[in-house]
Amino acid sequence: MKTKLCGHHRTLAGIIYLALALLVSACSPTPEPPLRIGTNVWPGYEPLYLARSLGYYKESSVNLVEMTSAPEVIQALRSGTLEGAALTLDEALTLLDDELDLKVILVMDFSHGGDVLLARPGIAALGDLRDKRIGVEQTAVGALLLDAALDAAGLRVSDVEIVYCAANEHVDCYWSGDAVVTFEPIKTALLKQGAWQLFDSSRIPGRIVDVLVVHADSISTHPRSLEYLLAGYFKAREYLVDAAEDAGKRMAPRMALSPAEVLASFKGLRLLGLEENQTLLSGNPSQLQATASELAGFMLERKLLRNRLTIENLSDSRFLPGNKP
């Protein structure tokens, strides 16, 4: 008697399917490599660290690299050891001048008194700066503010002695010279030591802009991390408003100020919200691009740039919360 053996092939197929599933599971998508974002110390950048402190980046590949000065950050960005950095717009233009392919994904703040020119007591007016040693960071911001201050004083660069010093050297520079172009939190520290504030960024509104830039290729390699980065930033910004006291405590050690001083230092700048960022970054050309073009023209005029820049596709708003990357 011949009988049919049922289900034999079905069983075999099942086994093969099981084995394949096992293999495929080994090929699951790998986590993104670390997204390294470098910053120097500036109140406008602190919401990023507040976000880290609050644990918003715990589950992501976001790494904040703390550097002592802007040139250091620029150096690292240029050398490729950072995927992104918080910079002033002028610094970003400088890097574009060096043909780095960067994208602005976030406008962080406008300096509104945060950048200052401080003078030793006795130097009461801008005009008194003639022949004086003025310390300044070798950055576009430094150049911009000093240029605006000299312009206001009716002086030329040749009328003063320029001493270049990095941000971590500003205090020393102040004491060894007559004046220094600096910013928060050094501004608060020096004012406490008796420095006189002769000029500040509030007199050149919209000229000093802090942005978050990333290498253009990082956008494709770290899309999820970038999303995380901005989402965390905006949450921390809300936290700073909602729980200012705790936020101040969390930010104080990094800025080497008291929590109250930390919060006071935010008066010298205007943090931009999500809607403003949408406005600034969206469109082609975006509003930011227009601002950047204007600044580039100014910088070229002041010989802060070597080449006339053709600025295209500078901003990328995809990573703003609510937008699809």
């Binding site: 670390p34 390294r36 470098g38 790494n63 690299v65 703390e66 550097m67 002592t68 000065s69 250091e72 150096q75 690292a76 050891t81 950072l82 990095a166 971590n168 050297e169 020393d172």
Partner: peptide, 15 residues
């Protein structure tokens, strides 16, 4: 001395 800190913080890029 200023460079001392910069040399060290530059290693921060190595995550």
């Amino acid at each position: 001395y200023v460079r001392v800190g910069q040399d060290l913080s530059a290693r921060g890029t190595n995550t």
